[in-house]
């Protein structure tokens, strides 16, 4: 059985590091991208199983990236979790409508990420 992969897309190196530690603990092989454009280039060559996507990033924001990733061949397959400090319900609904499987409000911890990933079926409960 091949190892599941996760791409963490966030312009904060610290957030990427924290998220990487959590997701690696859940058994994923992790790669990182610092903005949407970098993430899109990554996904064009190989789609990960799971994506954690920040909203506000330079070059290309998370929402633009998510829409373009979903339009790639097979782009409907990865489980995409939006991770943002944005907590307004209408903004959360916007991210879900754009194709996010779930939405994580920052700050989050390992328990939250694990429960979110199991709710979207990316890991066993």
């Amino acid at each position: 059985m091949s190892v599941s992969t996760c791409l963490i897309v966030d312009d904060s190196r610290i957030i990427r590091k924290v998220a990487r530690r959590i997701v690696e603990g859940l058994g994923y092989e992790v790669d990182e991208a610092a903005d949407g454009a970098e993430a899109l280039a990554y996904c064009t060559s190989a789609l990960p199983d799971v994506l954690l996507i920040d909203w506000n990033m330079p070059v290309m924001d998370g929402l633009s990236f998510l829409r373009r990733m979903r339009a790639l061949p097979g782009g409907d397959r990865p489980k995409a979790l939006f991770c943002s400090i944005e907590t307004r319900p209408e903004k959360i609904a916007e991210a879900l409508a754009a194709g996010a499987d779930d939405y994580v409000m920052k700050p989050f911890d390992g328990d939250i990420l694990q429960s979110k990933l199991s709710e979207v079926g990316a890991i066993a409960a």
Partner: peptide, 23 residues
Amino acid sequence: SGFEVQRGLTAHAMLRWFEPAED
């Protein structure tokens, strides 16, 4: 809290059953 409401619930369920109350 944001931590409590996210533990076990999808964002969809959170929006369905909860409303913001300050933070």
